[in-house]
Design a protein around this nucleic acid. Structure first.
Length: 493
RNA sequence: GCCCCCAUCGUCUAGAGGCCUAGGACGCCACCCUUUCAAGGUGGAGAUCAGGGGUUCGAAUCCCCUUGGGGGCGCCA
């Protein structure tokens, strides 16, 4: 019988929630939900200098947006509270194991000044050697000498100077490391805070974590962690190093590739369900053909066994497609509801507020399949809401039409609109098809001219449905305005 | 430089020795539908499975080498 699955997402509040990072959180969450285990969030804020105010909140915001609810963690509490390392540090959580290692001789105090370490690294790099600590303070005499220069020691862990160590990674199998290449790394900083190495091992143990899913950038420190687990007498959880998420140039996805924060994607109008679907398929698959998968099915089908160990490029084009699919699969009401707040702030000033929900409900069906992202809406829908869309009147004159012809077409269209009693799409279509014939224009020409006059755009939803929704009054006013524009245009064209 | 990881269409992937003259999806192209734009439908181009050696009756699948890409080498995580 195996212990219950307990997984944790342990972000450091030093910036916005990166997609690669959040993908790890998603896998954690899926594994927990799949197995009926627990998903824990722990904040690793042991670097006070790099901490960014508000970052923690934004990370939690991202999880919430994606619907990755946590069972234990900030704002939630739990049997192993607190879940913030700075608070745990204050409680002495890390000092105790550090003392123990010191007492057993597995660790030692190091007084080397930062300047010395920096100089040493520089020299090593200049010589083309890997930079690592020279273990000066392992020697009591040297330690005393260093102490005279610096009275705030760190605690370093003694690593073996030779041998090889195989450590198991859940995705790759056994990975072998040369221990002689390891240096004595710091586990407790001069300020009393643990480094990542000590902090996460102690907390994962205390919090009874069963599986650690983290980025592949941690793979090189796996032997260190193995050694620490051993020295502390803790059992090592299952370790899985997830492949790196790459940018289009195949280097680690970063700011210069564009948006890296999932909150950026939220702000750009992507749907959380699309984001979850997309992220789940980055480095994991159900089979060879499933692309669209619901959250429920994701939970049902997820497993570490189908997680890849090769890195994947974050393909925004595919995300766009997928988001469009989710946009189209929403009910009109759902979409209208999500669009309303965006339109309130995003529509041009002259669109009347508050937005009439009934009118929006009529507009949404016409635009839904044309929206790729929520944020496309203010721009795409604005002509439905403003009094008079702005456009270049030249565009009313369609291919093969003269200015006078266009003018006449618009005038006649205006009169036809004014005379029309049945203001619905079929009646409008009948009327204007007949008018096109009468004017000797193709329907494409007339409809194109009308589309520009009525919407200000050359690409818009079906013309007559649009006119029907806009209403007779608006359409008449816009046609009248269009006639005026054409009349006022310089003759040159 | 050293260590580690990875390697199937441009991209995400299926493939766990014969079912592969390598399947799906995004993107791309063409056609159809059509009042525009979308959406949808149909079809197409696109991978000698990075290269070379083995193992085997048989290799995209196993082993080795090379090459390429990525990651790591902090009192950062």
């Amino acid at each position: 019988m195996s212990a219950p699955v307990r997984v944790r997402y342990a972000p450091s509040p030093t910036g916005d929630p990166h997609v690669g990072n959040i993908r790890a959180a998603l896998f954690d969450w899926l594994l927990a939900r799949r197995t009926g285990g627990a998903f824990i969030v722990r904040i690793e804020d042991t670097d006070r200098a790099r901490e960014i105010p508000g970052a923690k909140e934004r990370i939690l915001e991202a999880l919430t947006w994606l619907g990755l609810d946590w069972d234990e963690g900030p704002g939630k509490g739990g049997p192993f509270a607190p879940y913030v390392q700075s608070e745990r540090q204050a409680l002495g959580v890390y000092a105790e194991p550090a003392e123990r290692l010191l007492a057993s001789g597995a660790a030692y105090l190091c007084y080397c000044p930062t300047e010395r370490l920096d100089a040493m690294r520089k020299a090593q790099q200049a010589r083309g050697e890997p930079s690592r600590y020279d273990r000066a303070c392992r020697d009591p005499a040297q330690r005393e000498a260093m102490r005279a220069l610096n009275d705030a020691p760190v605690v370093r862990f003694k690593t073996p100077t030779e041998g090889r160590l195989g450590v198991r990674d859940a995705l790759r199998g056994e990975v072998e490391f040369d221990l002689s290449l390891l240096d004595d790394f710091v586990i407790l900083k001069a300020d009393g805070f643990p480094t990542y190495h000590l902090g996460h091992i102690v907390d994962d143990h205390l919090m009874e974590i069963s599986h650690v899913l983290r980025g592949e950038e941690w793979l090189p420190s796996l032997p260190r962690h193995h050694l620490l687990y051993e020295a502390l007498g803790f059992e090592m959880p299952v370790m899985a190093h997830l492949p790196i998420v790459l940018g289009p140039d195949r280097s680690k996805l970063s700011k210069r590739h564009g948006a890296t924060s999932v909150l950026d994607y939220r702000d750009q109008g992507y749907l959380p369900e699309a984001m979850v679907n997309f992220l789940a398929l980055l480095g994991w698959s159900v089979d060879g053909s499933t692309e669209l998968i619901s959250r429920a099915d994701l939970i049902e089908r997820f497993g570490l066994d189908r997680v890849l160990s090769s890195s994947a490029v974050f393909d925004v084009q595919k995300l766009d497609w997928m988001n469009g699919v989710y946009m189209r699969s929403m009910t009109h009401d759902e979409l209208a509801e999500r669009l309303l707040p965006l339109l309130e702030v995003g529509l041009p000033e002259d669109a009347p507020r508050p937005i009439d929900p009934a009118y929006l409900a009529a507009v949404v069906p016409l635009e839904q399949e044309r929206l790729k992202r929520l944020s496309d809406a203010p721009d795409l829908l604005s002509f439905f809401f403003v009094e008079q869309p702005r456009y270049n009147p030249m565009r009313i004159i369609r291919k093969g039409m003269a200015r006078d012809g266009a003018r006449e077409a618009i005038d006649r269209s205006l009169r036809a609109a004014e005379a029309l009693d049945e203001w619905d799409a079929p009646s409008l279509e009948r009327t204007y098809r007949a008018l096109a014939d009468e004017l000797g224009l193709t329907s494409g020409q007339l409809f194109g001219a009308l589309r520009v006059a009525v919407t200000g755009r050359e690409a818009a939803p079906p013309l007559f449905d649009t006119m029907a929704v806009l209403g007779k009054q608006r359409v008449v006013a816009r046609l009248r305005a269009a006639g005026g524009f054409l009349g006022a245009m310089p003759v040159a064209c």
